[in-house]
């Protein structure tokens, strides 16, 4: 974009005194209409892996009972941001977060916050279906068991979770069979059922359909629309059509290479209602991406 040499800047809006060799124009992000009632928000979120600056200054708000999609080219930091939202990044050695992520006003990176408790409120569904090598029943019951949930009847809870995930009719006769016997799409819906069995508040989905065929994908998308009534969903996707189909709001990220090291730092470009972002993007980079000119 800009041909002028990178300069280390410390502008007034620079958070926490971090200085970067990313030019001002690239750092600018368009924030459109934000949700009225946000369950979570990120405040000047910066993520580092060792010395590598993975994500720069992300400010997002995730609306209650909305689906928020995060899109962008590979390496733009969208999955990194998602993994910070329930502190799964803690598992990566060298990962470091600056800024804040607030969940109902509480910074989940504050001192004294237990990441395990955070994950009980903010569940996660992964890219590749990853059922446990156990029966379908035990896959669902595992979460409530490990977090010590008080349940009157585990059978009812398992049935409820499978019904909510629109999987009950397909598996009700083989609850004791291995989850590996299910198809990829069924496995992914099982993973969603497993997540909602622990009654989280927010569900994070990291490219939940990228390993699925179109029919299985549309089932998962239908399920996401269903779940939106009860949960707040944040989904990372490579698939722009998917974001356009299911989400209420979309955040578009891009990657900006550092001109000295070549490391790509993720930036938030535009955040708005999905309808507006896809039909009338404000930022040139968003427009280029959604019209297929790059990425």
């Amino acid at each position: 974009m800009s041909t002028q040499p990178a300069t280390a800047t410390t502008s007034p809006d620079e958070p926490l005194g971090i200085s970067l060799s990313i030019d001002e124009e690239a750092k600018h992000s368009v924030i459109g209409e934000v949700p009225a009632e946000a369950v979570m928000d990120t405040y000047h979120l910066n993520v580092f892996y060792g010395d590598f600056h993975a994500v720069h200054d992300v400010n997002l708000q995730f609306g209650k009972n909305e689906i928020t999609a995060m899109i962008g080219p590979s390496g733009c930091g969208k999955s990194t941001v998602l993994r910070c939202l329930n502190r799964m990044n803690d598992l990566i050695p060298g990962a470091r977060v600056e800024g804040a992520i607030n969940y109902h006003g509480q910074n989940i990176y504050a001192k004294g916050i237990d990441p395990i408790a955070v994950r009980q409120h903010i569940g996660m569904v992964f890219q590749k279906p990853n059922p446990f090598p156990k029966s379908i029943y035990d896959n669902i019951a595992y979460g409530p068991r490990v977090i010590g949930m008080k349940v009157d009847s585990m059978d009812d809870l398992v049935e409820g979770a499978l019904r909510d995930a629109a999987l009950w009719d397909e598996v009700k006769d083989k609850l004791k069979q291995s989850a590996f016997g299910l198809s990829g799409g069924q496995q992914q819906r099982l993973c969603i059922a497993r997540t909602i069995a622990t009654k989280p508040d927010v569900i994070l989905m990291d490219e939940p359909c990228s390993a699925l065929d179109p029919i299985a994908t549309s089932k998962v998308e239908d399920l996401m629309m269903q779940l939106r009534k009860d949960y707040t969903i944040i989904v990372v996707t490579h698939n722009m059509q998917q974001a356009a189909r299911v989400s209420d709001r979309t955040a578009f990220f891009t990657a900006k290479p550092d001109e000295t090291t070549g490391n790509r730092t993720g930036l938030l470009v535009e955040f708005d209602l999905t309808k507006r972002l896809f039909s009338n993007p404000e930022d040139k980079r968003t427009e280029d991406y959604i019209s297929g000119r790059f990425g």
Binding site: I116, F126, N130, F132, P133, Y142, V146
Partner: peptide, 22 residues
């Protein structure tokens, strides 16, 4: 596989539970 550990941690399991049960 790391997937199994992540699935377990993602549900709010502790390291001990993940190690012992998965």
């Amino acid at each position: 596989p790391q997937d199994i550990r992540q699935a377990s941690y993602g549900l709010g399991a502790t390291t001990w539970q993940t190690t012992w049960r998965q």
